[in-house]
């Protein structure tokens, strides 16, 4: 339910993403930046149910794996 009209919330997302992205660049270059960003986005919606989250993450990773071949 996070909407684009929540600038402060976006600030926080950006701040979380910056932290994760810096770590990815430094230590986990094998991971795709887009995928990591997508996973973080999925979790920043606090109201989503656990099952929904797991499915979302699983699908994102599967899509990525398929793309990679």
């Amino acid at each position: 339910m996070t909407s684009a009209a929540k600038p402060k919330s976006d600030d926080q997302f950006q701040s979380l993403l910056d932290t994760v992205e810096r770590l990815r660049r430094d230590k986990f270059q094998q991971l795709d930046a887009g995928l990591v960003r997508e996973l973080l986005r999925l979790h920043s919606n606090g109201a989503a149910a656990d099952g929904e989250l797991i499915r979302g993450v699983e699908q994102a990773v599967e899509r990525h794996l398929t793309k990679e071949g």
Binding site: V20, R22, L31, V36, V61, L65
Partner: peptide, 17 residues
């Protein structure tokens, strides 16, 4: 391997953040 790497990445991110 991918899940394992992702898990480690987010685990470290928690501490860093």
């Amino acid at each position: 391997e991918m899940f394992s790497d992702l898990h480690r990445l987010f685990d470290e991110a928690v501490g860093a953040y």
